[in-house]
Amino acid sequence: MVVLVLTACPAGLRGHLTRWLLEVSPGVFIGHVPARIRDLLWMRVEEMCKNGRAILIYSTRNEQRLAFKVHQHDWEVVDLDGLQLMRRPSEGKVTNPMRHGWSAASRKRRARRS
Rank of each mutant, 00 (worst) to 15 (best):
M1E: 12
L4Y: 03
V5Q: 14
L6W: 02
L6R: 07
L6A: 11
A8R: 10
C9I: 01
C9A: 14
C9P: 12
P10E: 13
P10H: 06
P10Y: 03
A11V: 14
G12W: 04
L13G: 00
L13W: 03
L13T: 00
R14I: 04
G15H: 15
G15C: 07
H16P: 01
T18P: 05
T18A: 05
R19A: 00
R19M: 00
L21C: 08
L21R: 07
E23H: 14
V24Q: 12
G27I: 00
F29N: 02
F29S: 05
I30Y: 10
I30H: 07
I30D: 10
I30V: 15
G31F: 08
G31R: 12
H32A: 09
H32K: 13
V33P: 08
A35P: 00
A35V: 07
A35D: 07
R38Q: 12
R38T: 04
D39T: 01
L40C: 01
L40N: 04
L41G: 01
M43E: 14
M43R: 13
V45S: 06
E46V: 11
E47M: 13
M48S: 02
M48I: 05
C49G: 02
N51T: 14
N51H: 12
N51M: 09
N51E: 15
N51Y: 08
N51L: 10
G52W: 02
G52S: 04
I55N: 01
I55S: 02
Y58Q: 01
Y58V: 01
T60H: 05
T60R: 10
R61I: 08
N62M: 05
E63V: 06
E63C: 02
E63F: 02
Q64C: 07
A67Y: 00
F68D: 04
V70T: 15
V70E: 10
V70Y: 02
H71C: 02
H71T: 07
Q72L: 04
Q72K: 08
Q72D: 13
H73Q: 02
H73I: 03
D74R: 00
W75D: 08
W75V: 01
V77R: 03
V77K: 11
V78D: 09
D79C: 06
D79N: 14
D79A: 09
L80Q: 02
L80M: 08
L80I: 09
L80V: 10
G82C: 10
G82H: 03
G82T: 11
Q84G: 04
Q84V: 04
M86Q: 07
R87D: 00
R88D: 04
P89C: 07
S90Y: 01
S90E: 06
E91Y: 09
G92H: 05
G92A: 10
K93Q: 13
K93C: 09
V94R: 15
V94E: 13
T95K: 15
P97M: 01
R99W: 08
R99T: 10
G101A: 08
A104T: 15
A104L: 13
A105H: 13
S106W: 12
R107L: 15
R107C: 09
R110T: 04
R110Q: 13
R110I: 08
A111E: 10
A111K: 13
R112K: 11
R113H: 03
R113S: 15
R113Y: 03
S114D: 04
